[in-house]
Design a protein around this nucleic acid. Structure first.
Lengths: 332, 332
DNA sequence: TCATGGAATACATACGTATTCACAAGTGAA
DNA sequence: TTCACTTGTGAATACGTATGTATTCCATGA
């Protein structure tokens, strides 16, 4: 069935090691032999076996990417550039979408079937990083990290982004403000909330608990949050959402409830997904470079695999920018 | 670094082959030894090396999934259930997103690094299937196929779906009808168009070329198609779109152009993505079971890998259903 | 007592590549 | 002519697991 380097060697009239060297352009093999071997390989349609190479070199040129929910519109925009960057660095991508840490770690990550791992949906209480650490498996965080020192992570200036939004809302005259923040066990959720709260506090604007909702970064979180917020003692005139997907949930709920955006309610997102620019939304949001975020993570992981990395950890932080569109207005 | 079965063998006081057999519960190993080995493996945190196993068994328990554009909202809804079904069948997923066939085939698919391939974005003119065939690499089509006999494919009754839409539009009194169909080199594009055209013809309704646009199954295709269609000699009162993503492009373009849906224009999609049900769209569309489509493909591939498959090809076709929401109305 | 057969385990080896080391042939200098 | 050195290639082996075959041990029956 499979053609091996031995078959090529036989046809070319050389030894198997020479085939191995010739095809990788090892300078120790003479030009003449190299050509001869390559012609033989070509003739046989030889493709080196990945398994054999892996066993011999102890490198798989494969990287795992862990994501909880792929159908969340956010992740494809992370995974696509991640794939492309990894690919151009000579690595392939194994996609792993799992709910629970444990099974993944034992079965799939520790059997030496990949050289490293990208954690795209880490929570601060996950035990996975520690397990990877213990096994010496290189890994990096993408978008979210643990918030602890020593992480290798490609992240966004979430706190700065939260501040940006708070200042804009205050400048627009909003005082009854609400937040639909991300889950408390994610750094993205916590940091955006933190920056937002700090900047509000600096401006002397309060954020009472009945105008705060927290939940997963999902459509439903936003969709279900709006009615709750409208029920608050003092209904908000503006809502800052943990990310665009949540904001889109809020916008849809607003439409269902007959709440006019931005006249009755200002809605702000975070991420600036392509979808946010769609006519039906024209969502005012906070932009960061999602592609670069992913590419950076890929490069960081590859450097970590090569051990060309600061042992004390590296945290690459991308800046944010306020993107005004059509879902914000002055407070009435 | 890595713990091997030899280490376990030494600790347990048995030979390496006995470790291999004991851990896989080979009945030839006595209960007592099995327990002893398992305790030793546990103590050393032993995880069998994937590469060694692959080399020895010639099976990788890995499957490749090829998709062109992951950021297209359609694909995540295919890939997520595909991943889960493959996972429950004991296979892992390698994600490959490439534009051009050739490089992929040579480098990544034929090096024995996976047991099979799912083609999710095949075009009718792709040379990839033939290459896979020649190498004896098992593969199945998902959603799209080549339309030729002998395919192994999990697909939707596209023609039937197209017919459903045509009949509904005609019943609603529409006579000036338009189509934004998928690319001509995809079976999904062709078959939906074919069914639609046939049913229109049966009803004596024409579909002139200036009310037809074809393009990739992308948002932009729909967004850019609407102005073109509105420029037709007789502007349409209804548009059938190749899929939901295209329809959503049309809906956004309609909003931008001030065209009221459904009063001025009826818009129909295909797929019934979760997004289609969002309040901002409430898209009337054609539903099929996207999850089952993916699961079926996974199971079919696994059967093909195990050679438990009809050598003449197997084409699993899922039914469609019309889903009336809020983007259709009677013709004025 | 010894051959027979079954159970349990060990030995040897295959899988395909890459690498270390040894070796042969050729080159140039002393 | 000999020696040191370079260049090019092959032999042997490592990588970690699984499997076909041989071996050992023990119980059984004549």
């Amino acid at each position: 069935m499979g053609i091996t380097s031995h078959d090529v060697a036989r046809l070319a009239g050389v030894s198997q090691p020479t085939v191995s060297r010739a095809l990788r352009d090892d300078p120790r093999v003479s030009m003449a032999t190299r050509e001869k071997v390559k012609r033989a390989a070509q003739a046989l349609n030889y493709v080196p076996s990945e398994a054999g190479r892996t066993l011999s070199t102890r490198a798989t040129r494969r990287v795992g990417v862990i994501v909880t929910d792929l159908t969340n519109p956010f992740y494809p925009h992370v995974i696509a550039p991640l794939h492309d960057e990894l690919s151009s660095l000579g690595y392939r991508m194994m996609l792993i979408t799992e709910r629970s840490d444990e099974a993944v770690a034992e079965e799939k990550l520790l059997d030496q079937s990949m050289d490293g791992v990208v954690l795209a949906t880490a929570t601060t209480d996950s035990r996975l990083p520690a397990q990877l650490e213990r096994r010496g498996m290189p890994y990096v965080f993408l978008n979210r990290d643990t918030g602890r020192a020593g992480d290798f992570a490609s992240v966004v200036d979430n706190e700065g982004g939260g501040r940006l939004v708070a200042r804009e809302l205050v400048a627009l005259g909003h005082r009854r403000i609400a937040g639909v923040f991300g889950a408390a066990n994610t750094t993205t959720g916590r940091e955006r909330e933190m920056g937002f709260r700090l900047a509000l506090a600096e401006a002397g604007v309060g954020l009472p608990e009945d105008r705060v909702v927290r939940g997963a970064f999902e459509y439903d979180t936003g969709y279900r949050a709006l009615p709750v917020l409208l029920d608050a003692a003092e209904a908000p005139t503006a809502v800052f959402c943990g990310n665009d997907v949540v904001a889109i949930g809020v916008l849809n709920a607003a439409l269902a409830a007959g709440v006019k955006v931005p006249d009755d309610l200002t809605v702000i997102g975070f991420d600036d997904l392509p979808m946010a620019a769609w006519e039906v939304f024209r969502l005012t949001t906070v932009r960061h470079d999602l592609q670069e975020l992913s590419r950076q993570a890929a490069r960081l992981l590859v450097r970590r695999i090569a051990k060309e990395v600061d042992p004390a950890g590296e945290r690459l932080v991308l800046p944010t920018e306020f993107v005004p569109r059509a879902t914000h207005a002055h407070a009435r």
